[in-house]
Computed example of a mutant assay.
Amino acid sequence: MTLPAAARAPAIVHPSSFIEDGAILGSNVVIGPFCHVGPQVVLGDNVRLMSHVVVTGRTSIGAGCRIFPQAVIGCEPQNIHYKGEDTELVIGENCTIREGVTMNTGMANAGGKTTVGNNSLFLAYSHVAHDCHVGDNVILSNNVMLAGHVSVGDRVIMGGGAAVHQFTRIGHHAFIGGLAAVSNDVIPYGMLNGNPGVLAGLNIIGMQRAGIDKQSIHAVRRVYKAIFDQTTPIRDNIARIKAEGTVVGAVADIISFIDADSERALSSPARGKRG
């Protein structure tokens, strides 16, 4: 949100913090003690850095975000192939980034941009690696680790200590259990637990909280059972569902997700079963 001219106010910066020349600070920004803001950083209106926060690289942070102590935002990718290219990190509005969180800029050979949506919550020591794309209203609990090139859809919730393999996709409204090892794609609305991660059903509670109607939830339940009918291959099951002509709404989201190109296989209820 951009404030009207009459309500705009200069940033408040603690004298112990260092703001490099070139940094852009929006209205009503508050920077607490012992912070460092780099020369390519843009902080939107009403951003607050609590204390001991580092924001560096070509990083933009949307209005209303709060960043807690010891977070390091916008450092270069943790990748041996990074050669100092000018890549970026873009964070949306109203995100809360708790203690010790790290987020990296992108790699030049993969689009050069890491993105985070609006209204998301990153609990202590969670990590967003280079070229990740995280949607809106996402929650990463403590110590969640996203490797490079991971895609996380809107309203995903990830339990503490979960780890996601590079290039993995997690569909919107999915739920990932604590300490889960996510090495394959997780369908929208899916619930995954364990190491290795296995689908354990659907995130019905998350769907209800998102306002999805009962008819759509029942349709997703039926399709889930049909897709993962272990008597026939998943691709055959998908073809049969399409032939029935009922691929609409939430069901279409799941089918489109499975049909999309991916570097990873598809998580299923059976260990070792591949898409």
Rank of each mutant, 00 (worst) to 15 (best):
H36L: 08
V223D: 10
V164E: 05
M1H: 13
N195D: 00
K273H: 09
Y189P: 06
G178V: 04
N119T: 00
V251I: 00
I227L: 02
N119I: 09
L140Y: 03
R222T: 13
R235P: 11
I217A: 10
R271F: 02
A219W: 05
L123P: 05
C75L: 07
T246K: 09
P15R: 05
C132Q: 01
L146F: 02
N28R: 14
H130D: 04
E20L: 07
F167Q: 06
I258K: 10
R155N: 06
T96N: 15
T2N: 13
A219C: 05
Q70I: 05
N143C: 12
I258N: 03
P10L: 01
N184Y: 01
D253I: 00
V90E: 10
S17W: 09
T56S: 11
V47M: 07
Q215K: 15
S126P: 07
A108M: 05
I80A: 12
T102C: 04
V220R: 05
L49C: 01
V13Y: 06
T96E: 14
R66Y: 12
S27G: 06
V248K: 15
H165P: 03
G92V: 09
A200P: 07
H165L: 08
V134F: 10
A11W: 02
A210R: 06
C75M: 04
H130C: 03
V248A: 14
V144H: 02
V247D: 03
G194D: 12
G111V: 11
M207T: 08
A9I: 06
R98L: 00
T115L: 09
E85Q: 03
V72I: 13
P4I: 08
I205V: 15
V41L: 09
I31F: 08
I73A: 02
F34M: 00
V150P: 01
Q166V: 01
G161N: 09
T87P: 11
A163R: 03
N109W: 15
G197V: 06
V54F: 09
T2E: 15
V47H: 04
F175M: 12
K113A: 12
V72D: 14
